[in-house]
Design a protein around this nucleic acid. Structure first.
Length: 193
DNA sequence: TATGAGATCAACT
DNA sequence: GTTGATCTCATAC
């Protein structure tokens, strides 16, 4: 078994971390799977929550790397990020999609769905399927209930513009597993196939 | 396949 | 009062 991902893994450039998370395994209370889609956000990026400085909501982003930043999206959903770089850098990787491998029955129950493909194909869906809420904001990723493992296989990474934002819309900071059926949305090169 | 409405909360103007 | 790092369901084509 490979060593779990710990704080030094996250204390690096947010884009490097984002790329390396593709294919990595993420579990929450034993439920989860293979990360297939993420987006990178940096405090110099107008689309990032940390762009305009620290607030109560985004405080975790300004803290040490290797922690979970969970926020409410559109008043309805929860979305989880992994804090990266050094303390104060306020950069994070948004987890957008997972290929379910562990605890699929629990995910189906929480999501009220049969289709495995739709269990975790979007940031709000990931949190609902894994049971992540604002109560988990600020938790360390290196210990329970989180468990993270590096990828063991070779992957082809697709990049493209991020989804659902209105600022810095052209920056290609969305990263995904090329050809995965569990993406929230296909990448352009793949769609043109 | 594509577009639109509604749900609902915290930050910000 | 407006706006989102969203998702689901309904209706139209």
């Amino acid at each position: 078994m490979p060593r779990p991902l710990r704080r030094p893994f996250f204390a690096r450039d947010v884009h490097a971390v984002a790329r390396e998370l593709i294919g990595a395994t993420m579990l929450f209370k034993g439920v989860g799977g293979r990360i297939v889609e993420v987006e990178a956000y940096h405090h110099t990026d107008p689309a990032a929550h940390s762009y305009n400085g620290q607030t109560r909501r985004n405080a975790v982003m300004f803290g040490p790397p290797g922690h979970a930043y969970v926020y409410r999206s559109y008043g309805i959903h929860w979305c989880v990020n992994f804090v990266c770089e050094e303390e104060g850098s306020a950069s994070a990787v948004l987890i957008r999609a997972i290929e379910p491998t562990d605890g699929i029955a629990a995910m189906r129950r929480r999501r009220g769905l049969k289709d495995e493909r739709l269990l975790c194909s979007g940031p709000g869906r990931v949190c609902e399927a894994l049971g992540i809420t604002g109560a988990h904001n600020g938790l360390a990723l290196a210990k329970p209930p989180f468990a993270l493992w590096p990828r063991r296989d070779d992957v082809t990474i697709a990049t493209g513009p991020r989804i659902g934002i209105t600022k810095a819309v052209d920056l290609p900071w969305r990263y995904g597993l090329q050809g995965s059926r569990f993406l929230s949305k296909p990448f352009r090169a793949q769609a043109a196939r």
